[in-house]
Amino acid sequence: MKLSLGEKLVTYLVLVIFAAFALVPLLGVVITAISPSSSTSGFRMPETIDLGNFVEAWDRGHFAQYIVSSLIVTITVIVVTTVLSVMAGFAFARLKFFGSNIMFFVLLAGLLLPAEAFIIPLYFNLRSAHVTDSYWALILPQIAQSLAFGIFWMRNQFMSFPGEVIEAARLDGATDLRTLWQIIVPPSIPSIMTMCLLVAMWTWNEFLIPLVMVTQDNLRTAPLGLAFFQGQHATDYSLLAAAGIIIAAPIVVLYFFLQKRFISGMLDGISSR
C-alpha cells in the first residue's frame, strides 16, 4: 500500500523523536565519558575529546579483571546451557517418556520464578557447601536460570523439525544421540545461535547473583565491578560513564551486528510461552 507524502513525513517525525528519546541519555553518557574528568561543573559539550577517562577507569577500576571474570562466567554458562538445552529440548520434543509433562513443567517454573524467590536460601545453601566466593557460585545458578529458557526454546525448535527426516535416520539404524547431533542439530544452528546470544546477554548483564554470591574483588563480574566503582567515585561522572561504556560495549556491539536475532529472540521467546 502506498503512503501519502504527509503520512510518510508524520511517521518519520514520530520515529525520529522517539529514537532521539531513546538515544539522548546514551549519547549523554558518551559525551560525558569523553569530557575531561576534572569538570565537576556539570554537563556540557566538551571542547576537546579526551579518552583519558577510559584509561583511568580501566586502570583504577580493575576492569580488566572484572571483564575476565565476566568472560569466564559467560562462556561456561553458554557452553553448558547449550549442550543441556539441546539434549533436554530434543527429549521433550521427540521422545515419549514417563513423567515428561511434569518434568517439563518443573523446568518451565524457572522461566516464571523471579530471582528473589530462590536467592536467599540458595546463598545459605551454597555457603554451607563452601561454594560462595567462587566462580561456581556465579556459574551454576545462572545455568539453572538459563536452562529454563534454553530448553523451552530448543523444544519449540525441534518440534517444528520435519519428522520424516528423523524417521529416515532411525530406519537407517542411527541411535537417538547420533540422530540428534548429526541430523537435527546442524540445520538448527541459527536458532541455537540466537539462544546463545540471549543467554550471553542475560549472563553478562546479571547483577543480583554476583552481588549476593561473591565478596572477593577478583571474582566480581563487570556490572558488579561498576556498582562498586560507583560507590567509590560517586560523583566522578566522566569516569563512571567511561566504565559504563566499557561494560556495555561487548553486548551492544554484538547487538548492532545481530539485531534481528536479538529482537526476534527476545520477543518470540516470550510471546510463545
Partner: peptide
Amino acid sequence: VIASVVIATT
C-alpha cells in the same frame, strides 16, 4: 540490551 547497572549509573 544494555546492562541495568549501566542504565542506572547513566
